[in-house]
Design a protein around this nucleic acid. Structure first.
Lengths: 135, 135
DNA sequence: CTTCAAATTGAAATGATTACAATTTGACAA
DNA sequence: TTGTCAAATTGTAATCATTTCAATTTGAAG
């Protein structure tokens, strides 16, 4: 049984071709694509795909913990199939979003000043290693 | 000379009534308002105010380092008159954004994995102290 | 007081996301 | 295998934050 089919079944989500494709795409392309990028890419193979379905599917997968939203850009959301909590770097030179594995004293749920923390989000803006040209 | 007038003059920004009001509002209301909230509030006193002016002014103030954008909500930006780098907590109960003063090993520019970091952004989602009811 | 670049304004455009109603489909049971 | 029905998909239209744009107004410098 295919990996992604198994994931959906285990989560008890109804299996559809669209969900399989979107899940597979996110899991094999860790480029933090936007909804539009996912749509454009998958539309090539499935011309009947609707953008609404992309949004709906993202929503379902998110509710079941299969993807995260990455907000490094205030005008559109990007998506990331969940692996582990990590941070992101938006490169101002190439525009890519790079995963940053960084140990953080509050990377998991913690108490700060009497508040309850459920989620920790961190991102950086800068220039990625490749664009720095190894200088 | 008024504080805010002085700030604008020091930055070499042309002084206008609208800029003074927006700057004053942000500096006296640390509630991380959205552009719309700023607009609605100031419109009460200045009925001729345009929302475009709010956006334009935010842009100018930002370019001169007088305000920061806070992206805890993916569908609208919020604004914060700059004091020092800090993080934010979006309370899922009351919807407010609370400042979180937390010491962070990478709060200032640092190198991580060969990339250059120019800005550090962090935010949390959870429930604020007041909504927890001091339990 | 004149002048002019820059700021303000309101209306219209843009672009991501959501709402909605009609159609299709997956899962389950007979 | 087939029938059924809730849930998923689709396309269109609406929504909402933000930007564009052209016309008007205004601050600052002379």
């Amino acid at each position: 049984m295919e990996k992604y089919l198994k994931i959906l079944k285990e989560k008890g989500i109804k299996v559809t071709a669209q969900r399989l494709e979107i899940l597979r795409f996110l899991d094999t392309h860790h480029t933090h694509p936007s909804a539009d990028e996912i749509y454009i890419e998958l539309k090539k193979r499935s011309p009947a795909l609707s953008k609404t379905t992309v949004y709906n599917t993202i929503q379902s997968l998110k509710e079941h913990g299969l993807l995260n939203t990455v907000n490094v850009d205030s005008h559109e959301s990007r998506f990331d199939s969940v692996i582990n909590p990590h941070h992101h770097l938006l490169c101002s030179a190439c525009g890519n979003v790079i995963d940053i594995e960084i140990e953080c004293p509050y990377t998991r749920k913690m108490l700060a000043g009497g508040h309850r923390i459920d989620e920790v989000h961190g991102y950086f803006k800068g220039v990625c290693k490749d664009c720095l040209g190894g200088e």
